[in-house]
Design a protein around this nucleic acid. Sequence first.
DNA 1: CCTTACGTTTACGTAAACGTCAAGCTATGC
DNA 2: GCATAGCTTGACGTTTACGTAAACGTAAGG
Lengths: 129, 129
Amino acid sequence: MSDRTWSIGELAEEFDTTLRTIRFYEDRGLLAPERQGTTRIFHTRDRVRLQLILRGKRLGFTLDEIAHVINMYDETPGERGQLAFLIADIGKRREALLAKRRDLNEALRELDDLEERCRADLQRLSDSR
Amino acid sequence: MSDRTWSIGELAEEFDTTLRTIRFYEDRGLLAPERQGTTRIFHTRDRVRLQLILRGKRLGFTLDEIAHVINMYDETPGERGQLAFLIADIGKRREALLAKRRDLNEALRELDDLEERCRADLQRLSDSR
DNA sequence: CCTTACGTTTACGTAAACGTCAAGCTATGC
DNA sequence: GCATAGCTTGACGTTTACGTAAACGTAAGG
């Protein structure tokens, strides 16, 4: 597909992060952009990985957890046993995400309750005048 | 309601956290348990707050953000202007949670895709033998 | 009376995730 | 030909969220 490439600055701007952060992710082995001399060249593949990383961060995962998941997407092994392991791993990851979604939905419900109470309070203020 | 109380150790065990963590939250003003002498006595109110804090953490919010939200639940002001502010604030919080849920659902979808690919690979391995 | 369990404060340590210089290379426009 | 913009690698600093150790208080049980 798109064989466009990006500089580190372009990616930082696009995803509202910093050069330092992107370099840090490379240091941690989460990214491995091409090099032309010393300069980093990011391909679509790297871009996608960066998006995965940042999304993981927004969801409160650590970089280690994120690295784990990213490698799941990467290594897609051909061997039988490894595939079984991977599928089991996917199950665990899904459970973690679902747990998070339960937390999230609960928080949303409570927020709705709070707003309702606020609106009721406002109504009462209007009525009593 | 329940006028039961808890020791710091009981709460730590129940929510699978540590004494240090709970004390730290008190230090940061997120909890303010009763004192009998120097010993902390936690009431239902404190317990609920602790649950809120831990859930917030699981969702990747900072303690500052969590403090903000907790205070929203607490201060429920009676005045008109403050109520309007609070409602606006609730809107922002909700948007943050919804954004997080979008991220989450996307991650879940991709995980499903990956699993499907794995199962297809397994199937192919079985077929070719 | 002494241990054991549970609690307390104080204070320094630490891991994660970057921020912030410093010092230097490189390519392009004027 | 030189300033400017953007990139590079160190290396030390900072914030957040606790961990950990020291030194001590308190209440119950054998």
